[in-house]
Write a protein that binds this DNA or RNA. Structure first.
Length: 303
DNA sequence: AACTCGTGGCA
DNA sequence: TTGCCAAGAGT
């Protein structure tokens, strides 16, 4: 049905772009364990979920623990979801741990304990969105998909579009561009995706891009345009102090700390504002991150 | 479409 | 010091 959209660059320019980025990746790729030859699709999936909005340095130790403790989806599915939340430690956004556990259950019950290799089935799993489905299909199975994360969007914005920053959220135009830039051959496309991401993570960074180290310096649309400043609306900063997110984090930290259920009094010690504390605790229960017991105590979810 | 959801390092 | 932000997803 659909064919590859015409690239805005032309065939020769596109080949040059691919060649430069792939050659750069061969020389500069980080030696990350989820890229090692002995990695499994499950390990790749776990890494992609952990890396959502979370720096590599913080993910590394937790990923090593997870894949050693739960080498397959069925291993994780056999545990209580609360164990996933506890082992998530302080990676942040703990609902990811809950969804990863739910994904493991779905893999065990509906996929024979295996990670599927196609985008649609991956997308149907809890916690797996458009980006992560494409990343797993591409990185773990070598399938041809446009892997479009914030790094990729930033590299495309600068090198091809000539803008200082990508749009606030993924746009249809950005998605089309990523598809148009995708190499024809699946194995090359898979390397291209991880290579562009790596370039965005190490060189074409958000704050202080290391343009002197960039293989695209002499053909970067943004540099050639004189590095114009970002013209769109400024990104909204995330409030933190005093927010529900902070309170939820404190409450869950108390529950993660010990193996035993916790009393309401122990939870009260972590935040003085009782109404807010109660609202946040209710929210955690509603999210399935906390389980209320009949005796009034609380624990991480057992089922 | 806009908003929510953790955490900690760094300039 | 404080704001920025790091491989998004779900609603």
């Amino acid at each position: 049905m659909s064919t590859t959209p015409a690239s805005p660059l032309g065939a020769a320019s596109l080949r040059d772009l691919h060649a430069r980025v792939l050659a750069w990746y061969d020389d500069h790729a980080r030696d990350l364990p989820w890229r090692a030859p002995d990695r499994t699709p499950w390990g790749v999936l776990v890494s992609e979920v952990m890396l959502q909005q979370t720096p590599v340095a913080r993910v590394l130790p937790r990923w090593l623990e997870w894949v050693q403790r739960w080498p397959t989806p069925s291993d994780l599915a056999a545990e209580a979801p609360g164990e996933a939340v506890r082992a998530w430690d302080r990676l942040g956004y703990p609902r990811r741990a809950l969804r990863l556990h739910a994904a493991a259950v779905a893999l065990r019950d509906e996929h024979g304990g295996e990670v599927p290799d196609d985008h649609a089935r991956l997308l149907a799993l809890p916690g797996i969105g458009s980006y992560t489905a494409a990343a797993v299909a591409s990185f773990a199975f070598g399938r041809r998909h446009a892997v479009v994360d914030t790094n990729v969007r930033r590299v495309h914005a600068r090198a091809v579009t000539g803008a200082a920053e990508p749009a606030p959220a993924l746009t249809a135009a950005e998605q089309r561009l990523a598809v148009a830039l995708l190499p024809d051959e699946a194995p090359t496309a898979a390397r291209w995706g991880v290579a562009v991401m790596e370039l965005g993570a190490l060189v074409c960074t958000a704050r202080s891009p290391r343009c002197d180290d960039c293989p695209l310096l002499d053909r970067c649309a943004w540099v050639l345009a004189g590095r114009p400043a970002h013209d769109g609306p400024a990104r909204r900063g995330q409030a933190w102090a005093g927010t529900d997110r902070q309170v939820r984090g404190r409450l869950l930290a108390v529950l993660r700390a010990g193996a035993d259920p916790v009393t309401a009094e122990e939870l009260a010690a972590c935040w003085p504002d009782a109404p807010q504390r109660a609202r946040c605790l209710d929210g955690l229960v509603a999210d399935g991150l906390v389980e209320p017991l009949d005796d009034g105590r609380y624990c991480l979810p057992r089922t």
